[in-house]
Design a protein around this nucleic acid. Structure first.
Length: 275
DNA sequence: ATAAGGCCCTGACCGC
DNA sequence: TGCGGTCAGGGCCTTA
């Protein structure tokens, strides 16, 4: 599933491909994919727009346009953006097609239809509730200590909460907790500040390393849920310590990795390394 | 304010 | 072979 490292890879890959290109027309095949404004307003707004700036906030892709507006894309579980040099027939999972002035096309595809697109004047309202960017300077250990204090939910659930840290999802929550040696069921408020500091460092290290390896490409119920815009897979899945390694030996101590369900999400951990 | 559960969706997979 | 039921999962919404 696309989390921060996968979305970051997407933005870096798309930047040189889409820079300065102009949207001439578009087709919306599944209207619910457009989160805001209305489908008509989205189409009117996007036509004639030129891509200029490319960014990311949490798991949101921010495609800045010459007019000052922004196209926001959230891939959720199975969203894909592909750029073609020539027009291509939409597939059953193609929900939005952007026709580019130079004859190319951008296809938004999404087998589960959970992804969403926005056309907005300013992205701030959409992004208002997000917590700090985990790789930014403002994400300090003290920030995380404050966010976790007085919270009785499990640390796993809190890491998935986008208002605590923006961009961490199921994969990187499990991997960060393993690296920090913290059991996923521990209540947020039960963590000592030294443990939070370890977790803080683990989150940054896991995310930075995953970006270097272009994210994790995994099957989710057999569906390939993430590939780069050019179809290449990420490489970080081969370096997972616990995620989707249920029953396999811990790479640190040899104990079998366990799977439990927390906050309605599969959670993987080493019972020996994470007491 | 926080926490927990439902909902949106589809394809793979299981059991019969 | 075909069918129905179950599962996964991000983020938003509702409920307690």
């Amino acid at each position: 599933m696309p989390e921060l490292p996968e979305v970051e890879t997407y933005v870096r890959d798309l930047t040189p491909i889409l820079h300065k290109r102009i949207v001439q027309g578009l087709t919306v095949l599944w209207p619910r994919i457009i989160a805001a404004p209305t489908v008509d307003q989205f189409m009117q707004g996007m036509i004639g727009q030129q891509f200029t700036d490319f960014g990311r906030r949490g798991k949101y892709m921010l495609l800045g346009l010459a007019s000052g507006n922004t196209l926001i894309i959230h891939l959720r579980m199975t969203g894909h953006v592909t750029v073609y040099a020539q027009p291509v027939m939409p597939t059953k999972h193609t929900h939005v097609v952007f026709d580019l002035a130079d004859g190319g096309q951008i296809h938004y595809q999404d087998s589960r239809k959970f992804g969403r697109l926005w056309f907005v004047a300013t992205p701030t309202t959409i992004l208002a509730k997000l917590g700090e960017e985990p790789l930014a300077a403002a994400f300090e250990p003290a920030y995380l200590v404050d966010k976790l204090a007085r919270r009785n939910a499990s640390i796993k659930a809190l890491l998935l909460d986008q208002s605590v840290v923006a961009g961490v999802g199921n994969i990187y929550a499990d991997e960060s907790l393993f690296l920090a040696g913290i059991h996923p069921t521990r209540a947020g408020s039960s963590l000592a500040s030294e443990e939070v500091a370890k977790l803080h460092a683990a989150i940054q290290r896991v995310l930075a390393t995953a970006i270097e390896h272009h994210g994790s490409s995994l099957g989710d119920s057999g569906i390939q849920n993430y590939a780069r815009p050019n179809g290449e897979l990420g490489e970080f899945q081969g370096r997972h310590q616990v995620f989707q390694r249920t029953g396999e030996p811990c790479l640190h101590c040899g104990q079998a990795i366990q799977r439990i369900v927390l906050a309605q999400r599969s959670t993987h951990f080493c019972p020996a390394c994470q007491q």
